[in-house]
Write a protein that binds this DNA or RNA. Structure first.
Length: 272
DNA sequence: CAATCAACCTGGGTGC
DNA sequence: TGCACCCAGGTTGATT
């Protein structure tokens, strides 16, 4: 579900509600969700700790704790994070809660139970948990860097965009949207891209992610921001979910195919 | 190294 | 109304 823009939107809404709060306890209803320490060890690691800020790396939300440690959450497909009053009834699929010192709690709701929680004593996500490529909205994300990352890989560009070790944060929606904006067919091999195409792709990735953050993310079904509200970028998608509808540039019907196991939308004319 | 598939889960949509 | 089946914003691990 949530890709970089959705996690960033959640981060923005949670940060003021979490920063400065002290954790008083946790509730774990689904132990398998706790990935890193043993679930029974998590509470003693968190209780009494003060939250110093909320960051994001790729699709991971990073809750910073006093003393250089991090509580990280990955929402996978249907995860939702909200901060609510402790006496407000939680959603049906709320499997993890972090109780705070002002009678509110951070709630992790996840219908499909794919979401993961990690704790580690560092700011960087340990490589043993996840290795992530550069942040696409950072200054280090340039056409030259992209060329470097793609070099020697005989790999379809759509698959490359979904590979978090190559670029962090892009998922199925924004991969399709970026390839459309860049005018690239999803099956193009990354080591065949010209400098001009790399430049276009780099720019397209930045553009689609930035636009979506401005629209508070894309809600196809489950995604909600930290206030429980849907985003609006679904109204601005150019190809994703628009099979059979006219291309916004040339009017040809948008095509959908299965590619690398994922539904893939593109304009057969503009991305020929 | 790359590709494919299954697995992890629940529920909405579709077609019979 | 029921039911079987496909599909979904993600990631990982086994297998070829």
């Amino acid at each position: 579900m949530p890709e970089l823009p959705e996690v960033e939107t959640i981060r923005i809404s949670l940060e003021p509600k979490l920063t400065g709060r002290t954790i008083t306890g946790v509730s774990i209803e689904l132990p398998k969700m706790i990935q890193n320490p043993a679930p029974e060890e998590l509470e003693s690691l968190l209780r009494g700790r003060t939250i110093t800020g909320v960051d994001r790396r790729g699709k991971y939300l990073l809750i910073r704790l006093e003393g250089e440690s991090t509580l990280a959450i990955h929402l996978r497909m249907t995860g939702q994070l909200t901060v609510e009053d402790a006496d407000f009834p939680p959603g049906k699929a709320t499997y993890f809660k972090v109780h705070l010192d002002n009678d509110t709690e951070l709630r992790f709701n996840d219908q499909r139970k794919f979401g993961k929680v990690f704790y580690f004593d560092s700011k960087e996500i340990p490589a043993s948990l996840s290795r992530l490529g550069p942040e696409p909205l950072s200054d280090e994300f340039t056409p030259e860097r992209l060329k470097q990352i793609f070099a020697r890989h005989q790999l379809a560009v759509k698959k490359a965009l979904l590979n978090q070790e190559m670029i962090a944060g892009i998922g199925n929606i924004y991969a399709d949207e970026a390839l459309f904006l860049a005018g690239l067919h999803p099956a193009r091999l990354v080591n065949s891209l010209t400098d001009a195409e790399l430049e276009a792709l780099c720019h397209a990735i930045r553009q689609v992610l930035t636009e979506s953050i401005r629209h508070r993310g894309t809600t196809k079904r489950d995604y909600r921001d930290g206030e429980g509200q849907p985003g609006s970028h679904q109204d601005y998608l150019r190809v994703y979910g628009r099979k059979g509808e006219p291309c916004t540039v040339c009017g040809a019907p948008i095509a959908k195919m299965m590619f690398g196991g994922r539904g893939t939308h593109f304009c057969p004319i503009c991305q020929g």
